[in-house]
């Protein structure tokens, strides 16, 4: 599993770690049942605090992407399949945004806005 962080970026480190996992799930590089490396090992490899990694795993758990299993550590949850399923839709959305000359940040803002807006149906 590839994890990349940039300590100088504005996003919190734990969010960046969680994003690495989310991206792998979206690309189906990680599928349900795959084991995540231990938080201690990730912390050592990235030279960050253990609690930062634990916080990232906790966030993923709250989203339902990851389950904690006794003796097996953090495992990708069945819900991940739904995320991977969205990948095609996301690709279409990005293509449409490019057509309109919008950058990724603008697209993300639009998606956030849509998620916040009350449902009108």
């Amino acid at each position: 599993m590839l994890i990349r962080i940039d300590p100088t970026a504005e996003t919190d480190l734990y969010e960046q770690i969680a994003d690495s996992v989310r991206e792998d799930v979206a690309a189906a590089r990680l599928v349900a049942g795959d084991r995540l490396p231990s938080a201690r090992e990730v912390a050592q490899a990235l030279d960050v605090n253990l609690h930062t990694v634990l916080k990232a795993y906790q966030a993923l758990r709250e989203e339902g992407l990851v389950e904690m299993r006794r003796g097996r550590g953090a495992v990708i949850a069945p819900m991940s399949a739904a995320v991977a399923e969205l990948a095609a839709d996301a690709g279409a959305l990005v293509a449409r945004a490019r057509e309109l000359g919008l950058g990724t940040e603008a697209l993300i803002a639009a998606v956030r806005q849509a998620a916040r807006a009350p449902r009108d149906t």
Partner: peptide, 14 residues
């Protein structure tokens, strides 16, 4: 090589 910013840290665990 994976393109990485000057401050970026990379790790692959598997």
């Amino acid at each position: 090589a994976l393109g990485a910013g000057p401050h970026e840290r990379l790790a692959w665990i598997g």
